[in-house]
């Protein structure tokens, strides 16, 4: 159990009022050591990620790794890789190839350290009847072997809109669009108001209603500050195109896991990339294009 912002401040106020020095008094779980208390103190008063200097980024990442060691007894590497120059990520999903095996979903859960208790998933796959285009009519809880005749499968996740309504809705500027097009969240700056969740027309955001739980053995240790590092209760999270992978040149976990090759990922600014080939040569469409959110996620058919 970690201490959330509200109980922390409440407790701090009380201890200060009582003339006490223990900052941890407000927390339901006491930090086990003075070191942890010190780390949490510095973590609490750090800047928004976008305002941090390189040194501050390195310091917070070091603290987070140490906290993970103290709390979960694991050695994580939290990265702060900057976006690559001349890169704008784009994604395409082949609706005529996907056969609904959902290996992408499980790969995503594993890679991004998603809460197992609430079964949080960034990706949803719906079984849709042929001719049906409204994704709301799809069934995600299909309980049979796939694929079945006269149906197709449609994946929905965060579309990383160029003109993202979730960013505009955030009152604390805790979510923004990175130069490489990825819409990210500074988990420590999020106050959990869920305005972004309400603003997103694609149901792309997930909220941690409880303390997220990931079995210790299953925690992905290669992490990114804006990506799959361990989250806390009351924080918003979302797909980041696996920022910890993509900024190191790797494909997102869902693309890597797809057994049918329905998922295409690449650089929209590279005229030779696969994603550009799809946009140029395939029949593509975007979900709810008329809203003007300008998603960087295309569906295509063979």
């Amino acid at each position: 159990m970690k201490c959330d912002r509200r109980t922390f401040v409440k407790g701090m106020g009380l201890t200060v009022a009582a003339g006490g020095a223990a900052l941890s008094a407000g927390c339901s779980s006491m930090p086990s050591s003075g070191e942890e208390m010190k780390l949490r103190f510095h973590e609490y008063f750090k800047e928004n990620y976008r305002l941090m200097t390189q040194l501050e980024k390195e310091q917070t990442v070091e603290r987070l790794a140490r906290l993970a060691k103290l709390n979960h007894d694991i050695d994580v590497q939290v990265g702060t890789q900057e976006p690559l120059e001349q890169v704008l990520y784009g994604y395409a999903f082949n609706v005529s190839r996907c056969e609904g095996f959902m290996d992408c979903v499980t790969a995503c859960v594993k890679e991004n350290n998603l809460d197992r208790n609430s079964k949080t998933q960034y990706i949803r796959i719906f079984e849709m009847e042929h001719g049906e285009t409204d994704v709301g009519s799809g069934d995600g809880k299909y309980f049979h072997e796939v694929p079945v005749p006269d149906h197709y499968y449609m994946g929905v996740q965060c579309f990383h809109c160029e003109s993202a309504p979730c960013i505009k809705a955030c009152p604390t500027k805790a979510t923004w669009r990175e130069p490489d097009g990825i819409v990210v969240v500074d988990y420590d700056w999020c106050i959990g108001c869920r305005y972004c969740m309400a603003a997103c027309p694609y149901w792309g955001r997930r909220f941690n209603w409880g303390e997220p739980h990931v079995p210790r053995a299953e925690i992905t240790k290669k992490q990114h500050y804006l990506g799959n590092r361990l989250r806390n209760k009351g924080e918003m999270e979302k797909c980041t195109f696996c920022i910890q992978r993509s900024r190191n040149g790797k494909l997102p976990a869902c693309v890597d896991a797809c057994p049918t090759g329905s998922r295409v990922f690449g650089n929209l600014l590279d005229p030779d990339s696969e994603i550009r080939f799809v946009l140029k040569n395939k029949k593509v469409f975007r979900m709810k294009e008329e809203l003007g959110t300008d998603p960087k996620f295309w569906y295509f058919i063979d």
């Binding site: 609904g100 095996f101 959902m102 290996d103 979903v105 499980t106 859960v109 079964k119 998933q121 990706i123 949803r124 796959i125 719906f126 994704v135 709301g136 995600g140 809880k141 299909y142 309980f143 049979h144 072997e145 796939v146 694929p147 929905v156 149901w203």
Partner: peptide, 12 residues
């Protein structure tokens, strides 16, 4: 043909 590895919740 095979079983899907998990299931998805409705959009909302």
């Amino acid at each position: 043909k095979r079983w899907p590895s998990t299931y998805s919740l409705p959009l909302d």
